[in-house]
Design a protein around this nucleic acid. Sequence first.
DNA 1: CTGAAAGCGCTTACAG
DNA 2: CTGAAAGCGCTTACAG
Lengths: 339, 339
Amino acid sequence: MRTRRVTQREIARIAGVSQATVSAVLNGSTSATVRIPPATRERVQRALEQARYVADPAARRLAGLGNKILGVFTYEPAMSVETVDFYGPLLTGIEESAERLGCDLLFLTASPVVGGRRRLLDRRTRFRLADGCLLLGQDMDEQEVAELVAEGYPCVAVGRREEPSIPYVGVDYGALTLELLTRARALGHRRATYLHADRQTPSALDRVEALGRATAGGVLDVRTEIVTDDDLERAARDAAGRGETLVLCENAFTAARVGSALVDDDTVSVAALGETEGHAVAGRQVSGFRLPRTRMAHEALTLLHRIIDGEAAPAKRHRLLPGRVEPGETLRAADGASR
Amino acid sequence: MRTRRVTQREIARIAGVSQATVSAVLNGSTSATVRIPPATRERVQRALEQARYVADPAARRLAGLGNKILGVFTYEPAMSVETVDFYGPLLTGIEESAERLGCDLLFLTASPVVGGRRRLLDRRTRFRLADGCLLLGQDMDEQEVAELVAEGYPCVAVGRREEPSIPYVGVDYGALTLELLTRARALGHRRATYLHADRQTPSALDRVEALGRATAGGVLDVRTEIVTDDDLERAARDAAGRGETLVLCENAFTAARVGSALVDDDTVSVAALGETEGHAVAGRQVSGFRLPRTRMAHEALTLLHRIIDGEAAPAKRHRLLPGRVEPGETLRAADGASR
DNA sequence: CTGAAAGCGCTTACAG
DNA sequence: CTGAAAGCGCTTACAG
């Protein structure tokens, strides 16, 4: 367990100076008074090189310094076979940014899963080792995060949050939803149903709210219906039965299922109000969104870094990035024409 | 930077005991002599709960305890768009295992890149915060790693290593290569060329060595040729010109390029001596290997954990896992028949 | 210009 | 049974 290590004391002995002097050389003499003569400095540097000194991050941390370690807390596994599709581009951005910022990444995979999601504030959680923490996942306990923020611990969520104290970088689902509906209207659609699960996450609310505005504004008349997974196909067929020409779904997975169920009904279009990359029904790209996930990760890590350095004005701690509507092939003209 | 935190001292004050007693309660009284009466214990526990105490990992580490943090050092970026294809399954296994073992993961993304690869033993490297470290990537400085091992720092490489002191979990490229050649022979092939870069990594050596054995053993007569990237297509056409019926490549990328160059020559087969998942030429799955990457990660992390716990007998620190030959569609019968 | 000292939060013998 | 003390390796005022 204990590995024999080179410490500042040892370097000091070699160089014939005090341990504090070694520290001063290493840290570029922060204290204005400390001005070490080049000769001494060189002697210490040589000893440092020769003995391959590496500072103990635990000791630095304990002594109050930043460690350049950024925590990554995911409320569900990020690299699993099921989720890597979605998280992959986020991880890409996270790794790139961390490298650019010269930071290491602490993935908090050990935090125990209680009631289906990881607990952030658990006795065993080691996020405090990190200078700050990135939070990924829909199912976040905002209260818990807010406490952390109130304590002064730097956090950034990926995805919009309701709790105003929580910094975040998210995607503008409202604008995307409106854009997709406008497109649908141009294709001749007038009535649609939105099938969604009963979840109260901020992005889920953003979608529903945008649908409400679209309906009120006369863009498209959208009925919303909460359905369980088992009822999805039934609900989609009911919508078709009522003469609605478009079924909107919460994500690409449910859109693909609905698309399959209605595959031989050319009069009903399907679209997802979420990322649809790589999702197709009968070879047709599912219509929906393209979310700038790599860029989100970049922006989130950069924001986190700024907050840690005390540079981010509170006003700049909330950011919604624009996405792009993916026209796809499952949103067709309302009369069933191919476009 | 500094976040106001609940310490053992504060808990001690609340519970009316000494700080050492709090530590004893937390650590299940290791010292045989310490037997805290249930009443005191409960009082401390309550204070712990109430104040939401979380131990400072830096302090624990400094005091000589393990942190249940496993380092992951990659000699090239693992989550980049280019590499995530290969590393993805490894990351999946790493995350799963870490979760199962109750460990966090420290990705050493900050280590500076010097001369094209990350330096492990650099003053800024923070791997010592981790209880041990997983090493990923071909281009590893074995000498450097051996030093670390000699110091007693627990390390496991993913991929075979020459340096006998370095523990590793790899894939049996030799056996896979032989199996693929045996298959080629059954398909009527007699002469082949192996096009490869001039790299001396252990797995590259394993392949060449297996090809030598196959040639000596009369399985297949394999010429080997070192080529640069620019020369690949030319070398492949030369092989075809010499009447060889099979071009072997080092990896799926070069195999795909060779396959494209020879796409209208039905008499020459192509195969890669590496993972070919997701690689195709003109819609044909590239013939090659399937490597158990997720399982490798599992085994590697488990081995690392054992070494950290001092449980792994040195004899069990080297492990080659079997892979599987992927028949694919670019290795066809030597006479050009479709199979 | 440089050293001695206190302190970061924890563990672990060692005394009472 | 529980507290006082030393020590892990570092930083940072504060004395010389």
